[in-house]
């Protein structure tokens, strides 16, 4: 994630720990629309002379002996905190090209370095935010999709009761019946699932590219809608109501530490209540660092074409194709 942000937060942490010094300067940093207050401390903060048990040496250059008679903070040219320059060997650089994993990050004693640790915390926080976040109203308006709900009432229940996320609420059932086209060739549905950020980041491009691909292939699309807190198998009930040939279900994937923005597309030929998992297919890892959303959308169109052609999905499709 953002190097600068990590550096700023570290600065902040260091300040908190150096609580006995007076803040000299307050800088404001705009980051992700939230404002962080950064406190700058002079390098000559007199930690050495204090009675504290723990001393913090912030990569400090050798300090001059402190003269308490002299006015404090004479050379108070405050410098922003900076991490030591990361200069990995060529082999580490070559290895890093092959994985997004945190390799070759070094260590401090038996523990990770502060920078690594903070980045880890940041990524973890992003994952938590993705689960508890919501897809914005503007995005849904731009997509021109209506929202329906499941039997889940809040996030906690969504996480603890997957079965409730697999059923539509009564009013949603009625709404779908009344407002969505019946018997389309393809029904596209969207849900935040376990990552609202996945939908925020990727849905627009995947959806537009998929629509284009299907229209090039002359495949008819039903009325797309958005499901708040849905689970994958919810497509079975929607299949019962609208009787589409294929459902393409775009849903936010359980976030990980490499990306919290990964989306998946689940596809199934004629999903109905009682459909077994072997009939579902998934294209996962759709995000900036994985399969580019645009390319995924274009590819999904051809998968739908194959499903329609063979009237089968999942394991049955593999069998029919081979």
């Amino acid at each position: 994630m953002n190097e600068e942000l990590v550096a700023k937060i570290t600065q902040l942490v260091m300040e908190k720990m150096n609580g006995n010094t007076e803040p000299q300067q307050v800088a404001e940093v705009q980051q992700n629309n939230s404002t962080l207050k950064i406190l700058e401390t002079p390098e000559t903060s007199p930690t050495d002379g204090s009675n504290t048990l723990i001393k913090l040496y912030n990569n400090a250059p050798s300090r001059e002996p402190i003269n308490y008679d002299a006015p404090a903070y004479t050379n108070t040219q405050a410098k922003p905190f900076q991490f030591e320059v990361d200069s990995p060997s060529e082999s580490v650089q070559a290895a890093r090209k092959n994985t997004p994993a945190r390799i070759g990050v070094g260590r401090a004693g038996t523990r990770p370095k502060t920078k690594t640790w903070l980045k880890f915390r940041l990524d973890h926080a992003a994952a938590v935010d993705a689960v508890y976040g919501e897809v914005s109203e503007e995005l849904l308006q731009k997509l021109n999709v209506a929202t329906v709900t499941t039997r889940v009432t809040d996030k906690e229940e969504y996480i603890t009761r997957p079965d409730l996320g697999r059923r539509l609420s009564d009013e949603s059932k009625e709404f779908i019946q009344a407002n969505c086209k019946s018997n389309p060739q393809v029904q596209i549905i969207i849900s935040n699932g376990l990552s609202a950020s996945a939908i925020e980041e990727n849905i627009m491009d995947v959806y537009l590219s998929l629509q284009q691909s299907l229209s090039n292939l002359n495949i008819e699309i039903g009325t797309t809608f958005y499901i708040d807190k849905g689970r994958v198998a919810l497509m079975d009930e929607i299949g019962e109501i609208l009787q589409p040939e294929v459902i393409v279900y775009l849903i936010g994937e359980r976030p990980g530490l490499v990306s919290a923005e990964s989306m998946s597309a689940y596809l199934c030929y004629k999903p109905r209540i009682g459909t077994v998992e072997a009939e579902r297919m998934v294209i996962s890892n759709i995000h900036k660092g994985g399969i580019p959303p645009l390319e995924a959308g274009a590819y999904l169109g051809t998968v739908v074409q194959r499903i329609l052609q063979h009237k089968a999905s999942g394991v049955a499709l593999v069998e029919k194709e081979s």
Partner: peptide, 8 residues
């Protein structure tokens, strides 16, 4: 990886 979408 954009060939398909650009072609399409």
């Amino acid at each position: 990886d954009y060939a398909k979408v650009i072609g399409q």
